[in-house]
Write a protein that binds this DNA or RNA. Structure first.
Lengths: 131, 131
DNA sequence: CTTATTATTGCAACACAGTCGCAATAGTAT
DNA sequence: ATACTATTGCGACTGTGTTGCAATAATAAG
C-alpha cells in the first residue's frame, strides 16, 4: 500500500489506546505524570510524550501550557473537524492541579504581518471546589 | 528602623540596577538567558532568577510563559500603580524569539466561585519582520 | 568613620520536564 | 508466514528553575 508522501500510518497499540481512553475519561487536561499514574500498564515517560505529540499532530488532542511552564493535554471536544482552533482559555487550580476548559472562544487581532500559529490562554488561581 | 512585619528592605546592587536597566532598554520580554548575555557584568544564573522574582513580587516586572514553557520577563508599562492587571496578550515569534506585548486588554469571566490569581495569554507564530 | 545587621550573591547540587538515538519489539499488509 | 517499519524502552542528555550554605556587601545606627 502506498502512502501519499511521508508514508506514515499510525499503529494501534496498547499504549496509545490506554492513553487515549485515559484522556477520554478525564474531566480535565492532564500532565504526562497524571496520565502515567492513571494507566493500568507501565508506559515509559518518553513513550507517553511521543504518543501525546502524535495525538497533537493529528489534531486529536490539544496542548496547554500551565503558568508553571508545564504541558497539559486534553482531548479536542468541539473542534475535531475542519475548524481546528483552540482559541479558548483554560483554568488551572493551583491547589488541586486541575486544568479545565473555559468555554468562551476568544478572537485576538494581531498587528499587520503577524502570523499566528499557536494560542495559549491560561488563568490560574483557585477553583470553586478548593476555595 | 522597623519594617512592618517581615522586615525586608530591598537593597540596591550592581546586579539589580543592571538587570533593571537591561529590561528598560529592551523592546520585548526577555528570558533569563537573553538578560545574562546583555549584561555588562557576569551575574550568576541563580541570582538573575532571584532578582527577577523579586521584581515580580514587587510588581515592577511581569512574567510571561511562552508556548515553549519558558519564562520571559518584561517591565510593567502602564500598570505601575494600583491597577496591577496584566490581562493582555503577548506574542512570541518562533523565528527570532522576540516576545512582544499586544496592547489589547482582555476580560475573561470565570465560573462562579473561581478566583483568578494569574493571567497568561500568549500567541506564538511569526512576526512581521520575520515573515 | 566604625560597627552591626541582614539582604544579596556565587557556587554547587538538585529536581524535573522534555527530547533523542539506538536497538529490540510488535503492528500491519502482502 | 514474512517483510516492512512504526512504536517502544532504555539510557543519556539538555536546559530550566530552585535551594542550601557560606561569603560578601548594602544599609542603618552609633
Amino acid at each position: 500500500m502506498q502512502h501519499s508522501r511521508n508514508s506514515m500510518a499510525r499503529r494501534k497499540t496498547e499504549s496509545t489506546t490506554q492513553i487515549l481512553s485515559t484522556l477520554k475519561a478525564a474531566s480535565s487536561a492532564m500532565s504526562h505524570q497524571m496520565i502515567q499514574e492513571e494507566l493500568d500498564i507501565e508506559v515509559d515517560r518518553a513513550t507517553i510524550y511521543r504518543v501525546l505529540n502524535r495525538f497533537c499532530e493529528d489534531g486529536m488532542v490539544h496542548r496547554v501550557i500551565g503558568e508553571n511552564g508545564k504541558q497539559y493535554f486534553a482531548l479536542c471536544e468541539g473542534c475535531e473537524k475542519e475548524n481546528h482552533s483552540h482559541n479558548h482559555f483554560h483554568f488551572r487550580c493551583k491547589n488541586c492541579g486541575k486544568v479545565e476548559c473555559l468555554s468562551r472562544e476568544i478572537e485576538i487581532k494581531l498587528p499587520a504581518g503577524y502570523v499566528a500559529q499557536n494560542f495559549n490562554g491560561l488563568i490560574s488561581g483557585v477553583c470553586a471546589q478548593c476555595a
